[in-house]
Amino acid sequence: MYGEKAYALVKECANHENSLPPYNASLVQEVSNEIRTLVEENQEDAQTSTEETSDSGSVVSTIRLRHAAVKRNLRCLMAYHYNRLRLLRKMRWEFGSILPADIKSNLSPAEIEWFAKYSRSLASYMRSVGDDGLNLAVDLKPPKSLYIEVKCTVDYGRYELNDGTVLLLKKDSRHYLPRSECEELVRQGVFEHIL
């Protein structure tokens, strides 16, 4: 049956709603081969159709059927890539501009390039806002106080604050820090906010 492979590709997206599975290059290749075969068969039939329209019905219906399969395959391919990119874009906002290595290894070369370009345009946009730039990734929730108490969840190592103080972040250590300095680390799961 046509479109089965393309369906498997989309199914892969559906099964991993919040994570990126490895880019399935071989399946993508197989689907594009299927499309190519269908188009070639259609062209062949379209050229010979004038001679043999007689005995077993018109080839027009065959061509229509194949064309429907081509359209379906295309749609699945587009949806697969588009939904991966959407997730990748979300990752830029949540992980920051550097992706964890195991996620990066799941991307195709084109996706890595897209990510770098997206990061670059986002950064240049954020620089252009206001007088000296504005980081859009912080203050996602309205701040209530300047300082917050946080607990460290991993052994992070040394971390330098804006005023030059160097902190040693060890697992389960507690800190009282300016909110603006640690919000990003909370988003990345290094700190846990204690109310």
């Binding site: 994570s19 979300k90 909370v186 799961g189 906010h193 109310l195």
Partner: peptide, 20 residues
């Protein structure tokens, strides 16, 4: 209950950790 929402780790980050 608390009327203040704590800062939280991003959804994908939490997911990523769980998977690890």
């Amino acid at each position: 209950i608390k009327s203040g929402s704590p800062l939280e780790a991003a959804e994908l980050v939490v997911n990523h950790k769980k998977r690890k």
